[in-house]
Each structure stands twice: as C-alpha cells, then as structure tokens.
C-alpha cells in the first residue's frame, strides 16, 4: 500500500482532520514508511485463524438496571465556556 495526496486527504476527511499542503510530502513519506512495516502482516497465511479482538476474550458483565450515579451536568458544563442554559453551543446547523 502506498499513499498519495488524494488518499491522505480522503482518510483525513474521515478522521475529521486536515493535512495542510506544506505538511503533505512529509505525511505521505512517513505514512508510507508505516504502511511498509504494517504490510509485513500479509506474509502470513491466516485463512483458518479466528480474529481475536481482546486478550481475554471477555464476556461483558451485566449489572442491575438501577441508577448508580447522580446527574452532574452543571459540574461537567463548567469544563467549557461554550455552554448556555444547560446546553452546549455550536455553530448553527439548521437555518
């Protein structure tokens, strides 16, 4: 796998990031170096191997459906200056 400008821009868009033009050559070079390393995986046949998503393959436990924590909206909204009347403010989405 080898990246070009267009592919980096497409992945960056998915990741909600921007790669500026002056950073593009260095980003492509380093991403291609990383992908060369990663592509070593393809040398192994894993057709008969089941994927493993977690080291302990755990079954997530369930808990009683009861309230365990109190509402802390006011405390959490002190973390931003962009909150008004209990709501977070963002640029207008609907005109």
């Amino acid at each position: 796998m080898s990246f070009d400008n267009k592919q980096i821009e497409a992945v960056a868009k998915l990741a909600m990031l921007r790669v500026d033009e002056h950073d593009m050559p260095d980003t492509i070079k380093k991403m291609n170096g990383i992908m060369t390393l990663i592509d070593q995986m393809q040398s192994v046949n894993t057709d008969q191997v089941q994927p493993l998503s977690h080291p302990q393959d755990p079954v997530l436990r369930l808990r009683e459906d009861t309230v365990t924590q109190s509402d802390q909206r006011e405390a959490f909204q002190t973390l931003t200056e962009f909150a008004e009347q209990g709501l977070y403010t963002v640029p207008k989405v609907i005109e």
Binding site: I8, V11, A12, L14, A15, L17, T27, K30, M31, I34, M35, I38, M41, Q42, V44, T46, V49, Q50, P51, L52, S53, P55
Partner: peptide, 27 residues
C-alpha cells in the same frame, strides 16, 4: 498520524485486509 493509520485500517474496503488480519495475528 496514528489516527490516520487507524482510520484507514477501519475504513470500508481495507477493514478485512488490515484490522481483521491484525486480529488474526493477535490470536
């Protein structure tokens, strides 16, 4: 960079070749 690599590995068309492949190697 790591977000870009991860986003790419999880993106449509590359998910099996990278993410699932790596999970198989993990096993």
């Amino acid at each position: 960079r790591r977000i870009l690599v991860g986003t790419y590995a999880l993106s449509s068309g590359y998910y099996d070749a990278y993410y699932i492949k790596a999970q198989k190697l993990r096993r």
